[in-house]
């Protein structure tokens, strides 16, 4: 297969269960493809050289930097972005936990961290704080100090272990942090 620089290639792949076929230049990054061609701006673009982790998405189930992959390299791949996490209007358990544990402030880094956490929890049934911190070392968050993020990931892991992951959002628990315990 050969594509000249000035040509556009008809790229087919799947994002969040939906098939896309778009015309792309060979040099287009996957992060830009998702934002500009698919209109999925939940994937954030920070440093564009693989340091900040904001653009992390799942490619065939694995968390990777979408700014370090050419879109054309992802031909035929099955991609999940942060828009693919919520199901039927209900947030993903991780999204819920992030809300409950105050694991985000400005939210710029959050989509990437959520995607890494999805893969992390699939491969780590009972993670320790250190393992979570190790996974998060690939993400820069300048607001939270990470404590809330570690707690949120830990919380989902704990609930999964106890088999009580709730499938729907719970508005009461979201407020629980601001309510002082009596």
């Amino acid at each position: 297969m050969q594509v000249k620089r000035e040509e556009r290639y008809s790229l087919r792949l799947q994002v969040n269960g939906k098939r896309y076929e778009e015309q792309v230049e060979p040099r287009k990054l996957l992060s830009d493809f998702l934002r500009e061609d698919c209109g999925l701006t939940g994937t954030h673009v920070g440093c564009e050289h693989g340091v900040c982790g904001a653009c992390t998405v799942l490619v065939d189930g694995r968390a990777v930097r979408s700014c370090l992959i050419l879109a054309i390299q992802a031909e035929g791949a099955d991609i999940t972005t942060v828009e693919g996490l919520a199901k039927d209007g209900k947030p993903h358990p991780l999204q819920e936990a992030f809300s409950e544990c105050h694991a985000l402030q400005c939210g710029f880094c959050t989509p990437g961290i959520l995607m890494s956490s999805v893969e992390f929890l699939q491969t780590h049934a009972d993670p320790g704080k250190e393992e979570i911190a190790d996974m998060l070392s690939g993400h820069l968050c300048r607001c939270t100090g990470y404590k809330g993020i570690v707690e949120a990931v830990q919380q989902v892991a704990d609930r999964r272990k106890e088999g009580e992951v709730r499938e729907s959002g719970d508005p009461v628990s979201i407020c629980s942090r601001t309510t002082p315990t009596v």
Partner: peptide, 13 residues
């Protein structure tokens, strides 16, 4: 920051 344009080849072997 985007790459400069290049030709793209994808060999199968």
């Amino acid at each position: 920051m985007k790459p400069a344009a290049f030709d793209y080849l994808r060999p199968s072997t």
